[in-house]
Nucleic acid binder design. Structure first.
Length: 979
DNA sequence: GAGTTTGAAACT
DNA sequence: CAGTTTCAAACTC
């Protein structure tokens, strides 16, 4: 089901969208596939031969509220060597003329000049106020040159009522209800099952007429009526899908190839009881008594399906929505020669893809349309298609099956976008090959670019909220049983349920293999082995991709991934290694939400830069996508997405102890933390230096030994160090970002509690709960809304296996404290200093150890705290002012001082100067330097130097400004300055 | 790694 | 709401 949605989504994409390598059954969930097979077999039992030279005309009454019907002719995918093309098929000229005559002047019937005209299948979904054939009385119905006689008995099958149809060439054929052909019975067919009988018995409920041309009327069809007596689909052996197709309107009529045709309509299964039921026409007996098996699988043209109206098929748990075909010929308009009540509208809507006629009143147009659809170099009757692997092959038109519309499993799938519905996703079946190949018909001008564009993906979105209609073959929201859990497909192909507290529904990152995208629905009891342990961070990583603009990146899919993320405000530090892809679950999750909720501003820098590695590789074009997002607190994040190789790399803060979620990373760090950060940045630079480069560094330092803070040599060494580790990434911004990102925290004393993420040095806590079952807030994982993963906990229930218990625990926690899962540390307003919402309650630690949540969060204690002997107010031991001595006057450091009553006299005002905007501006200036240098192909050393110079200039300006303001501040009110 | 300390969470 | 207990992380050795 999910795959169906996904494929639909694929088709909504433009023609550059990478095609999935699905087979059709990959698109079906097992039950559905099985159902399909059953239907196929059912049809086959009636002689579903795909190679009978037949034409079929389906007429369907089209009602205003009816949903789109679609023909999914897939019966041949397993056995028929013939590849059929549906949407490109047109009526042959005689039949087209007949149809036109029948349908009216405004009806355009186009015919494709197919060589195998005998296999053309025409489906008319008319808009008649359908009346049963017998409603015509004994008078024959004449459609064009084809006459449909009143129900009668066939000349050679006494007792079996047949509907003779006189064709244009004078032949008379008889329609006979689906017979158990294999049984060879010629006995009278029960009324309820014989079409003629049914026509005679169902009164005015017959909605469809089966037209034919000559003896070629064929096709396994279902004819619906509203006859209550026929509503029991089970009596007919209809599948659940059939029974589920309700007629939202009593006059809904469908004539469709049954089974694999997939023409199923109806919004819900609730109407199944009163739903018009379908009777299959499986054989056609010709005038000479020849019994012709209906050709269910033969190509067909679907006429007059309603555009952009999803056809909902009631499925197991959700409706399957099929949207309109992109290339179907839609005939609307009154059938002139049909009884009153016909409501076909004189519209032809060929919302065609590139290979479809837009509109035509003649068959020649269709022919032209097909011709023009092919590349100029492609022979007529051929199409240039692109496989999922990017290969472009020429396929005969007849070998292409348009797969649009495709059933969609979503219950809320909206109608297809007509503009996007023209994407040429097709299935082809090549002789000698089993299964369908899904390709895209390339437009004329895309045969060269499609391959390169294959990895180009449409802008990804981050959706918020509970399961919604997403059609994506990567990560999607699916239903889990009867509940609506948010489950995402991860890059690793596993299903990851999002913690209940999360509301993010991201989509999968581009470049992932669509073949792995099949995500079967989860039952209530789905254990999801291996899934619950999957990292949410796998999903989180994708979020960064989503935020990056991949439209113009021509590199590998990985190039779309955000390589650098700068999260400006950090409460702690992370990521020691600059080379390994980092994942910081908590922070990334934060970023997910941020990006999903906040508007994005993106700047793109395209740089034809020099080879920064110094290798012989030619300069590569680099694209920097700087995505700036703001969180709820106004703190902005930037993502530098470089076009090029490299793995996603993020810079995030670590997960704080006990519930330091979301807001921790989003909120402004106080001055002390900023100072600490700068100091750590400095320290980090030292750590990045390889020992082998120490000597060179010393030499450089001798040259610039008077530089006391961040110096070029250090940065240069940093850059070189990084370049050594990641030689293929020739971009100077990376070390820059290394510098700018929060440096790693010192190694934890207890390694088990805070391990380094193997993916990128991102610290991720692993709980060690033993008694709480990880379902209480004692557990950091639980408190952070995460599943336990790689933890050393015992009897852990914080996973999908115990989702029920887990959610109960969540509810319990929320009952006790509705804010239990809210960030403990927030800032009242954007730019304000962060504060612990509850405050600590320390008594013995002096709030100078990590026992203290305030201290751990690197924020000073506030009036909210009830701590005793608090020392977490100034002179923070973790703050080394070396790097900040000249940055901020010490008087501007944390000025939190309690008076005798414990009231704080003054808040920290440092953030007035070193705001996130200032930091961001500084970074942007540095980046701009990089960009400019790359444009000029300047040496990386120069770039590094200038970047650091830019940083220095910025810092000087900040310092100068801060000093000036500080002086003014003290002058104005010295009393407010605490010691 | 074991034991201790600590403070938040949970409980009464 | 306060006191107590439970719990797991932080910390020490």
């Amino acid at each position: 089901m999910l795959s169906l949605k996904n494929l639909k989504k694929r088709d909504e994409l433009d023609d550059t969208t990478t095609l999935p390598g699905f087979t059709f059954y990959d698109l079906l969930e097992p039950s559905m596939a099985s159902k399909q097979q059953n239907l196929d077999s059912d049809d086959n039992g009636g002689g579903c031969d795909t190679n009978l030279g037949m034409k079929r005309v389906y007429m369907e009454k089209k009602e205003p509220s009816a949903t789109t019907n679609e023909l999914l002719n897939t019966s041949g995918q397993k056995k028929a060597p013939i590849v059929r093309i549906l949407e490109n098929k047109r009526l042959t000229a005689p039949m087209g003329a007949a149809l036109k005559n029948m349908l009216g002047e405004n009806v355009r019937v186009v015919t494709t000049p197919t060589k195998t005209a005998s296999t053309t299948e025409i489906k008319i979904l008319n808009k008649l106020q359908a009346k049963p054939l017998n409603a015509f009385g004994n008078a024959p119905v004449k459609i064009g040159s084809t006459t449909i006689a009143a129900p009668t008995t066939s000349p050679k099958n006494i007792g079996v009522k047949m509907t003779p149809i006189k064709t244009a060439d004078g032949k008379v054929i008889y329609l006979q209800k689906s017979l158990p052909v294999t049984g060879g019975t010629t006995s009278k067919v029960p009324l309820a099952s014989g079409i003629s009988d049914r026509l005679a018995s169902t009164g005015s409920n017959i909605r469809h007429a089966i037209l034919s041309k000559g003896v070629t009327l064929s096709g396994t069809c279902t004819i619906k009526s509203n006859s209550p007596s026929l509503s029991s689909s089970t009596a007919r052996g209809l599948t659940a899908a059939e029974t589920a197709k309700p007629a939202a309107h009593p006059s809904t009529n469908v004539v469709t190839p049954s089974a694999s045709s997939g023409l199923i309509k109806g919004p819900s299964s609730a109407d199944a009881v009163s739903t018009p039921v379908a009777t299959k026409i499986q054989v056609v007996r010709t005038a000479d008594g020849k019994l012709i098996k209906l050709n269910q699988g033969s190509p067909s043209v679907l006429l007059n399906t309603k555009p952009a109206i999803p056809t909902t098929v009631s499925g197991n748990n959700s409706n399957k929505v099929m949207s309109k075909p992109t290339a179907q010929v839609i005939i609307k308009g009154p059938l002139k020669q049909l009884p009153a009540g016909s409501s076909l509208r004189p519209i032809i809507n060929n919302s065609g893809s590139s290979n479809n006629a837009t509109s035509s009143s003649s068959s020649a147009v269709a022919s032209t349309a097909i011709t023009t659809s092919a590349s100029p170099s492609i022979p007529g009757g051929k199409m240039l298609v692109q496989s999922s692997t990017g290969k472009q092959i020429v396929v005969a038109n007849k070998d292409i099956i348009k797969l649009w519309p495709m059933p969609n499993t979503s219950t809320t799938t909206t109608t297809a976008n007509p503009n996007t519905a023209s994407s040429g996703l097709h299935a082809i079946q090549l002789p000698g090959k089993s299964g369908l190949q899904y390709v895209r018909v390339l437009p004329n001008n895309s045969n060269n670019s499609s391959a390169s564009n294959e990895t180009t993906t449409s802008p990804q979105k981050v959706s918020l909220g509970r399961p919604r209609t997403t059609s994506n073959n990567t990560s999607s929201t699916i239903s889990v049983g009867n509940t609506t859990k948010i489950v995402m497909k991860t890059t690793g192909g596993s299903i990851v349920p999002l913690p209940s507290m999360q509301t993010l529904v991201p989509r999968r990152a581009p470049g992932t293999t669509p073949n792995t995208a099949y995500t079967k629905p989860l039952g209530n009891n789905s254990s999801l082995d291996g899934a619950h342990k999957h990292r949410v961070s796998d999903v989180n990583v994708q979020i960064k991709h989503l935020s990056s603009d991949s439209a113009s990146d021509a590199g590998a899919p990985e190039a779309k991934k955000a390589r650098y993320v700068i999260a400006m405000p950090h409460t702690s530090t992370t990521s020691a290694s600059g080379t390994a892809p980092a994942t910081a679950p908590a922070s990334q999750k934060n970023m997910q939400k941020i990006m999903g909720t906040r508007a994005t501003q993106m700047q793109r820098f395209t740089v034809q830069g020099a080879n920064m590695t110094g290798s012989n590789n030619p300069p590569t074009r680099k694209i920097y996508n700087l995505v700036t997002k703001s969180d709820a607190n106004g703190v902005k994040y930037m993502i530098c997405n470089k076009g090029g190789e490299g793995k996603p790399r993020t810079v995030f803060n670590t997960t704080m102890r006990r519930g330091y979620t979301l807001a921790d990373s989003k909120l402004r760090r106080p001055l002390a933390a900023q100072q600490a950060r700068l100091k750590q940045m400095k320290q980090h630079q030292h750590r990045l230096m390889l020992p082998a480069q120490a000597k060179q560094r010393q030499q450089l330092q001798q040259i610039q030994k008077h530089q006391t803070t961040i110096t070029k040599p250090q940065q240069q060494q940093t850059l070189k160090s990084t370049a050594t580790q990641e030689t293929k990434i020739a971009i100077p911004s990376k070390p820059l970002f290394d510098i700018l990102k929060p440096p790693p925290v010192p190694a934890p004393a207890a390694g088990a509690a805070a391990a380094l993420d193997a993916l990128g040095g991102t610290r991720r806590k692993h709980c060690n709960c033993s008694k709480s079952q990880c379902l209480k807030l004692y557990c950091d994982c639980f408190a952070n809304g995460e599943f336990c993963q790689d933890c050393t906990c015992k009897d852990c229930f914080n996973n999908l296996d115990y989702e029920v218990k887990r959610e109960e625990a969540i509810r319990s926690c929320l009952e006790r404290n509705p804010s239990a899962f809210k960030p403990k540390i927030t800032a009242p307003n954007s730019g304000d200093i962060r504060l612990h919402n509850k405050g600590c309650n320390c008594k013995r630690s002096g709030c100078l150890k990590n026992y203290c949540e305030c201290y751990e969060a690197k924020i000073p204690c506030s009036t909210m705290c009830k701590c005793v002997g608090c020392r977490n107010m100034e002179d923070r031991p973790d703050v080394d002012m070396d790097s900040m001595d000249s940055l901020v006057d010490t008087k501007l450091q944390t000025n939190k001082v309690k008076d005798l009553n414990g009231t704080y006299l003054q808040e920290n005002r440092s953030n007035v100067y070193l705001t996130d905007d200032v930091i961001e501006a500084t970074i942007m200036c540095m980046i701009s330097r990089i960009v400019m240098h790359e444009k000029q192909n300047l040496p990386v050393e120069d770039t590094e130097r200038e970047v650091m110079e830019e940083l220095g200039e910025s810092l000087n300006q900040i310092i100068t400004f801060a000093k000036e303001k500080n002086d003014t501040f003290h002058t104005d009110d010295p009393k407010t300055t605490a010691a």
